[in-house]
């Protein structure tokens, strides 16, 4: 799992989208592994839905948006890439070392790695949200954050009804959809999707 976000932290947009997709796929697989011994209809359904939503729909949505926006070139992020990367690495280290402070009951977790990994994912997602200027990247950051949370949830989840899980995913989907529209609009209105320019509002 670590590989995915290390990739995310560095390279180009298309790669990122693919990475998110891969992450989604991994996430859905995780569903199976978490409940490995219980192959009931619930788990399988979730697996499929998650897989479809996370690895298929959302990446497609994002890439479609990205295409419609016709990004010309990579913008300078708020912070330069290497720095971001280093901070990301630091965050991962922190998340792995500080996990002892979190009194999580990890008895039935697949591997002890999942919790810190999830935490690291959340943090990196946040990092991307904060450091990247482009709207699409922010969506990706958001997704990574969300994935991290899902991973987290997965390790401990037991009795969310299917309806709820489904609803959560639906929300996510709609959210990304609306964000896509917004990005489209931003591009149309501003001619670019650099969110740093979105700071007109405020108190004088």
């Amino acid at each position: 799992m670590l590989t995915t976000f290390l990739v995310l932290a560095s390279s180009r947009l298309a790669v990122r989208i693919k990475a998110v997709s891969a992450q989604g796929a991994l996430l859905s697989v995780l569903y199976l592994t978490v409940r490995g011994h219980l192959f009931d209809i619930h788990t399988i359904a979730l697996f499929f839905i998650t897989f479809i939503v996370k690895t298929v729909f959302i990446p497609i949505l994002i890439s479609r948006t990205a295409k419609s926006v016709q990004t010309k070139a990579e913008f300078e992020p708020v912070m330069s890439s290497p720095v971001t990367l280093m901070i990301g690495a630091a965050l991962i280290v922190i998340s792995f070392t500080s996990i002892r402070f979190f009194p999580l009951v990890t008895s039935h977790v697949v591997s002890t790695l999942t919790v810190p990994a999830a935490l690291a994912t959340v943090l990196v997602g946040f990092l991307i949200l904060v450091t990247k200027a482009k709207a699409t990247n922010q969506v990706i950051g958001f997704l990574i954050l969300e994935n991290g949370i899902f991973t987290f949830g997965m390790t401990i989840i037991s009795d969310f009804p299917m309806m709820v899980e489904f609803g959560v995913l639906l929300d996510l989907l709609v959210g990304v959809f609306i964000m896509g529209i917004m990005i489209y609009q931003i591009n149309k209105t501003f001619d670019h999707i650099d969110t740093r320019t979105l700071s007109v509002l405020g108190d004088e």
Binding site: Q138, F142, G175, I186, T189, L201
Partner: peptide, 19 residues
């Protein structure tokens, strides 16, 4: 433009918050 900015901020920040 302004309302777009507001909406984007609203959407993203609230989504993150709710996440």
């Amino acid at each position: 433009k302004r309302s777009l900015e507001a909406a984007w901020k609203y959407l993203l920040i609230c989504s993150v918050g709710i996440a």
